[in-house]
Amino acid sequence: MGEITLGQYYPSNSILHRLDPRVKFIGTILYIVSLFLVNSWIGYAMAGCVLAVLIGLSRVPLRFILRSMKPVLFILLFTMIFNLLLTPGDVLVRFWIFRITREGVSLAVRMGIRLAFLVMGSSIMTLTTTPNELTDAMENLFAPLSFFHVPVHEIAMMMSIALRFIPILVEETDKIKKAQMARGADFESGGLVRRVRSMIPLLVPLFVSAFRRANDLAMAMEARCYHGGSGRTQMKPLKYSKRDFIAYAIELAYLAVCIIFKVRGL
């Protein structure tokens, strides 16, 4: 009941699930870069094939990947329509104050493909990688930044604690809401001002409880000798295996092909 899975991890044991999270993180970034490098139909076809192969390898049902499109659907349609209507060029159709141009259609489709591929590509990463692994990968990859006094370890710790506490706070919100409803509180009706005001009996206890939890947790961490990242070892350090290097090689090859496409103007 009510266990929130962030980034909607889909448990499985596919080759993509088993890859080192750093490989997947870098691969996702490279894929996004490639979407902006290529500008030709052949290029998009290639990116589409890569995506299809990845979806196949991940063994995640297609509907989970399509579902990730839902929250961005509005932005996607908005950009497409915006591009469709406001790009100057060869006029194809004309109605009211708008003109649809050949360039507009082309740009809208390109934008649509790019955005859709981008979202689906990154959702493959979040579907095959636990939030925890992702945090580890980011801590590891951004470690050099600590040289510039960026608190990389602390940020990663913060993220993983947030992941642990989100479900607890969601449950707590539900409890407090019910407790106030039992005292006759009304969260549903009334205008905007009334609704915002009616949130006070919910938000104040929630903040109080969140701070108490933070305080307790800080104490529990100190009691277990936590004193920041220095001198700390790791129980599950990230370790590359052969398949990870192969994956890196494939990623690089793909990037190279995209650059060649770009240079050749294909």
């Binding site: 409890k175 407090i176 407790a179 106030q180 039992a182 006070i200 009996p201 104040v204 206890p205 109080v208």
Partner: peptide, 12 residues
């Protein structure tokens, strides 16, 4: 009237 467990958590 329903008093939930740890009702002090609802004070605001």
């Amino acid at each position: 009237g329903l008093v939930f467990q740890y009702p002090e958590n609802q004070l605001f």
